[in-house]
Nucleic acid binder design. Structure first.
Lengths: 252, 252
DNA sequence: CGTAGGCTTGATTCTTGTCAACCGCGGTGG
DNA sequence: CCACCGCGGTTGACAAGAATCAAGCCTACG
C-alpha cells in the first residue's frame, strides 16, 4: 500500500544523507550540490538525557538547533499540573530558527528520549538561504509545514473524537518518519508513553489506552515494545478524515 | 481595572492612525516616521459581503492583504459538514503575507461580516522591511504573536473545559481589540454568532449558549446586541488560567 | 404577515474523565 | 541473588461534561 521508501528520496542513497536533507528534499527538490552544502554545515553536537528541559544559553542563543536523534516536545504546563504537548520534534526538525525561544515565549521544550542535537548558528542559515535558493524555498516550505501541523492539531482537538485524534496522530508521525527514511515496512519507533499521547491529544491516559486497544483489535495497528506497525494506513486515514497532503510532501 | 486606552498607543493620537500601525506599535515601539511610512503604504481597497469566501486571484496573487474593517476567519470544513474555525482576522491583521494561500493549503478564508480589505503588494512589504528595521521587527513579532495564538488555542482545546475555553477566547479578543483601540470602557463589538463561537472552541452552539448564560449570571460579562462588555477581566482570566503576556504586547 | 436565523431551554444520551485496583517488567539496593 | 519499588500499561465501575434532539421564542427582513 505504502511504499517503504519515499519516492522523494529515491534518487539519492538515503543512508548517506542527514535527516534534514531528506526532509527538505521531500518538501522541495534539491540538487546534489544543495544536499552537499547541507551535509557540510558546520555544527557542534550535544547530547541530552531523557526528560531534561532544553534551555538555550550562551552560544546557543545565536543558534538554531537541529534534532539529530531522539524525540523532544514543546509543551505548556497548566497551573493545575496538567500538561499540553504542543508539538513533537523528531530527527531532521529545526527548532528555534527565528529565536522565538529567547523572546518571552510561554512554553518550554524538553526531551522525551535521550537526544542528540546540533547547534547551527543562525548566521549560517541566513547565508545558506542567500546562496542556495532551493534550500531557502525548502526551509520556507518546512516552516509552512510546521504551521500546517499546528492547524491540523487544532482540527483534531476541536472536531475529532478520541479515535480520530489518535488515528490522525499516528498517521502524521508515520508520514513524517517516512519522509526521513525512518520507517521500514510500515514500522517505526514511538518512544511516547500513553500518558504523553494523552497530553498531545487532550485525552486521559486511560482513554488513550482503551482506544489503542480497539485500533489493535481492528488490526489497524500493532504495537510491540516501542515499535508501532501501521497495518492499514487507509483505515486510519478514513477514521481521522485526513489526507497526507497537508504535510506538503511532494510526490505521487 | 483595565485602562481603556492602551498605553502603547498613548503617545500618538490613536484616532489618526490605522489599526495596523496601532497593533505593530503595541508590539514594538515605532517612531513617528515609521508610522508615517505605514500610513502612506499604497493600497488598493476592496469591500466584500458577509459570508463570502475570500479567493486571491489575479493581482491579489502577488499581494498580502490587510483587514481594515470587519471580521474574517480561516476555517476548515470536515467531510461530515463540521467546521473548525482556525483563527479570526480582525482589523489591523495581515493575511497571506508569505503567500501561504497560494500554496496548496488545506483551509479557506471567508468573511464573517462585511469586510473592507486592502491589498498590499508583497514587494512593498519587503521593501518596507529593508528600509525600516523597526517595522521589520514589529512584523516579525506580529508573526510570532500569530503563532502564539495558535498554540494557545491548542492549549484551550486540549486542556480547558467549556467555561475556560470561552473565557480565554473572550479575553483574547478583548486584548486584541484593545490594542487597536476598538474597545471603550471594556466594551467591544463581537459579530460572532454562538454557532461560530462553538466552531472556534470545539463545542456545540447549545453548550456555548449555556456557558455564556452562566458567565452572564456571574456578572463576568454582559452581552447586548452584538456588543460584549467584559465586566471582570480578572475573573475571566482566572477561569481560563491565562495571562495577557502570551500575546506579546509590550507595556505595564 | 410570514419566514429564517439566531438564541434559549429542557430531556436524554453518550463520550470521556475519574478513581481505583492490578499486572508485568526492569532496575536497584540489601 | 532476590525482594522491593516505581513506572507504564490494562481493566472495571462510576461520574461528569458535553452532544444530541427537540421545541419554542424573538427579531429583522422581505
Amino acid at each position: 500500500m505504502v511504499a517503504p521508501v519515499p519516492p522523494a528520496a529515491s534518487i539519492f542513497d538515503r543512508n548517506s544523507f542527514s535527516f534534514l536533507s531528506l526532509k527538505l528534499h521531500s518538501l522541495h527538490a534539491l540538487s546534489p550540490s544543495d544536499i552537499q552544502v547541507l551535509e557540510d554545515l558546520p555544527t557542534t553536537e550535544r547530547t541530552l538525557d531523557k526528560d531534561k528541559n532544553l534551555i538555550t544559553e550562551g552560544q546557543m542563543q545565536w543558534s538554531a538547533f537541529l534534532i539529530k536523534e531522539g524525540m523532544a516536545m514543546r509543551y505548556r504546563m497548566m497551573p493545575d499540573g496538567g500538561r499540553q504537548i504542543l508539538s513533537l520534534l523528531i530527527p531532521g526538525d529545526l527548532c528555534d530558527i527565528h529565536g522565538s525561544l529567547t523572546q518571552g515565549v510561554s512554553h518550554s521544550i524538553s526531551t522525551i528520549t535521550q537526544l542528540r542535537i546540533a547547534a547551527i548558528p543562525r548566521s549560517s542559515i541566513a547565508a545558506l538561504c542567500e546562496q542556495h535558493p532551493n534550500i531557502q524555498a525548502a526551509l520556507c516550505l518546512d516552516a509552512l509545514q510546521e504551521e500546517a501541523i499546528l492547524r491540523e492539531r487544532i482540527v483534531s482537538l476541536g472536531r475529532r473524537d478520541a479515535r480520530g485524534r489518535i488515528s490522525h496522530l499516528l498517521c502524521e508521525l508515520f508520514w513524517r518518519y517516512e519522509a526521513i527514511g525512518l520507517t521500514a515496512s510500515s514500522v517505526f519507533q514511538i518512544p511516547l508513553t500513553q500518558t504523553e499521547l494523552g497530553d498531545i491529544l487532550g485525552l486521559t491516559q486511560v482513554h488513550v489506552n482503551r482506544v489503542l486497544r480497539v485500533l489493535r483489535e481492528q488490526r489497524l495497528i500493532k504495537v510491540e515494545n516501542r515499535k508501532l506497525q501501521i497495518c492499514n494506513v487507509n483505515g486510519l486515514q478514513d477514521i481521522a478524515e485526513v489526507s497526507r497532503e497537508y504535510l506538503g510532501f511532494r510526490e505521487t
